[in-house]
Computed example of a mutant assay.
Amino acid sequence: MACPQGVTPGSQQCLPSKSGAVNVAPAPRQPRWKLTWGAFALDNEAAVIGTSTGEFSKRSAVRTAMDKCAASGGRECIITLTYKNQCAVIADHIDRDKQPRFGSHAGGPTIEDASRTALDSCYEKNGRSRCEIIYSNCTRPVLVN
């Protein structure tokens, strides 16, 4: 007999048990993860960049990057990269006084992959001069369960 907890077997509240039935506890809830976004906003003329990471939407990532670019003195900020569930880096020419100088940025599955791409691009844009990574970040999923 299958009886509710605290009920004596044989009571009318008990149900006949199914032969071979096994009481199985429900599976625990699996954790839920929310992917996050990042963005870069650049003003070439003012030579400033705004970044964002860990935002829950592309729109929020773009807004935050644009706000940071403007707060750093940018007047003509444009979004140059948005990324979700990946890494992104910014590479810049090592000689900051050289004009013109060109930076580069890239996204990728790891910081190493993104760095390789951004450094190669920066190197080529600057007449094969050395560049370095000046910013790197990866968006991380957030546990929401």
Rank of each mutant, 00 (worst) to 15 (best):
Met1Tyr: 13
Ala2Arg: 14
Gln5Val: 07
Gln5Met: 10
Val7Glu: 14
Thr8Lys: 14
Pro9Ser: 14
Pro16Asn: 08
Gly20Thr: 02
Ala21Gln: 03
Val22Ala: 11
Pro26Gly: 03
Pro26Tyr: 11
Ala27Asp: 09
Arg29Gln: 04
Gln30Pro: 08
Arg32Pro: 10
Trp33His: 01
Lys34Val: 14
Leu35Asp: 06
Leu35Met: 06
Thr36Ala: 07
Trp37Lys: 09
Gly38Pro: 08
Phe40Ala: 13
Asp43Asn: 13
Asp43Trp: 13
Glu45Val: 15
Val48Trp: 06
Ile49Phe: 13
Gly50Cys: 10
Thr51Phe: 14
Thr51Tyr: 14
Gly54Glu: 01
Phe56Leu: 07
Phe56Gly: 04
Ser57Met: 12
Arg59Pro: 08
Ser60Asp: 08
Ser60Ala: 12
Val62Gly: 12
Thr64Val: 06
Thr64Ala: 02
Ser72Gly: 06
Gly74Glu: 03
Cys77Trp: 00
Ile79Asn: 01
Thr80His: 04
Lys84Gly: 14
Asn85Phe: 03
Pro100Met: 08
Gly107His: 00
Asp113Glu: 07
Ala114Gln: 01
Arg116Leu: 13
Asp120Lys: 12
Cys122Trp: 03
Glu124Ala: 15
Arg130Asp: 02
Cys131Phe: 00
Glu132Asn: 10
Tyr135Met: 08
Val142Glu: 01
Val142Thr: 00
Val142Trp: 03
Asn145Pro: 14
